[in-house]
Structure formats: C-alpha cells, structure tokens
Simulated scan of single mutants.
Amino acid sequence: MTLQIRPATPADAAFAAPLIQATIGAIGYALTGEAEDEGAARVIAHFFAQPGNRLSAENTLLLEEGGEPLGLAVLYPGDRAEALDEPFRRRLRALGLPDRTEPEATPGELYLDTLAVAPPARGRGLGGRLLEAGVARAVALGLPRVGLLVEDGNPAARLYARHGFVATGPRRVAGKVYTHLARPA
C-alpha cells in the first residue's frame, strides 16, 4: 500500500490526541492543567478539533497507509507561538492555575511541536518522511529553518541528526530541560 501525507482534519482527533500526549508528556500536562495522560489526551482532542491553537488539526500533517493513520507532525510558524498558546492559557486561568506557558518555538522558524509514529509502525522510516514533509512546508511558507526540542536521552535525537538538525542551545519547558535543534529548510 502507498503511504500518503495529508493535512489532518478534526475527525483525526481520536488517533492524534493520545499519540500527541504520549509524545509530549510533561508539556501536555502543563498545557492542559491535567495530571495524567488520559485527561490530558481528552483535552488535547478538544483543542485538536478547534482552530487557532498550537495542537490544532490545522497545524498537523497525518501520515497514513491505506487509510490507516500511522503518524503525525504538528508544525507551526514560531512567530505565531504566543497567539497559538492563548487558548491553553485561557483554559489554565479558568481552572485557577498559573497561565504561564514557556516558549518553545523561535521566531523565523517552522516549529515542529510534535513528531510521532504509532508504536506498531515504528522502524519503517516514517518519522523521516514526516520530517522531510515538515521541511517542505517550511520552504512553502518561506521560512528559512525548521526547529524542534528534544529531551536528553530521547532516541529520536539520532533521527534528527540524520536529517541535518543541529543543537542550538538548551530550553527549559514544563520544568524540564530540552535541547533546541534546527536545520535549514
């Protein structure tokens, strides 16, 4: 069967939300105000179906084979990060929680917020295909680079290095230290 990368739709939320939460972990808790994966994924599913936030379907590419979703990439221009986090800050305020969201993206880049492949589909080079689709999107948007964060020890760092990403410095987000990586588009 043929692999296809297509724009996600709100109907993809049931596949996307748990996979996004499993990938972003502590950041998902910080964004949603939830303390466990199931609750965070439920909130992410709600936001995925809504436009105008960082985890929206409108910012997501879905990789599928024969109509079955296998992976995704959530990408948005770094210049829009502050505005795309506002819906999450509103939710946190409504819950009586601090509404601070640490910046992840850098202005001037297409920020890869989440890259995830479903566990049964891993090891097939699908993450690399999604990365290259992200680079193509950056080119189409006229952005000079793609950036992302990776946690120390994450095996995906090898994938990023193979695709030309290099470290630009540390970032602290949701109480953890990540390394910001970037590559030219």
Rank of each mutant, 00 (worst) to 15 (best):
I27R: 02
R93S: 05
G52M: 11
R100M: 01
G25Q: 12
A11W: 13
A17Y: 06
A13F: 13
G96Q: 03
E68F: 07
I44Q: 01
L110P: 05
I20W: 06
G108T: 12
A11N: 10
G33H: 03
A41S: 11
R90M: 11
D85V: 00
R93V: 09
N53L: 03
E86Y: 10
E86L: 14
E64T: 11
R89N: 02
S56P: 09
A8Y: 08
R100I: 11
A49P: 05
Q21E: 14
I5G: 05
P10Y: 01
L95S: 03
L63T: 08
E109S: 15
T2F: 15
A11F: 12
L3I: 12
G52F: 14
I5V: 15
T9P: 00
A16P: 02
R89V: 06
E102R: 00
E68L: 14
A35E: 13
D99N: 01
A26R: 14
A57H: 14
P18E: 01
G25T: 09
R6N: 10
A105Q: 08
D99R: 00
Q50H: 12
T23C: 00
A13K: 07
R89Q: 10
N59I: 07
L112I: 08
A49Y: 04
E34Y: 09
N59G: 04
V74S: 02
A8I: 08
D79Q: 13
A16L: 13
L112D: 04
A26I: 01
H46K: 10
G39D: 06
A30I: 00
R6A: 07
L72Q: 06
L110N: 02
F48K: 04
R93Y: 01
P10L: 00
P18N: 06
G108H: 13
D12P: 10
A13H: 06
A49S: 10
D99V: 05
Q21N: 01
A105I: 09
L97F: 08
E65S: 15
A22V: 05
E65D: 12
Y111R: 09
T60R: 05
V43T: 11
P107N: 03
E68K: 14
G108Q: 10
T2S: 11
Q4F: 13
Y111D: 00
A49N: 02
T101Q: 13
D12F: 12
E109A: 15
Q4K: 15
A8T: 03
N53Y: 04
E65Q: 14
R89L: 08
A22L: 07
L75P: 06
G78E: 07
A73H: 13
L72C: 09
A35P: 00
A16H: 11
D85R: 02
L110Q: 05
A94Q: 14
A16K: 13
D85Q: 07
L3V: 10
F15V: 01
G78Y: 08
R91F: 12
A11Q: 11
D85L: 03
L63K: 08
P107Y: 09
G108V: 12
P77G: 03
R90A: 14
T2H: 14
Y29C: 07
G39E: 00
G25S: 01
A17F: 07
E102G: 04
G67C: 05
I20L: 10
D79M: 09
T106Q: 15
P103K: 11
A13W: 10
L70M: 15
G28K: 02
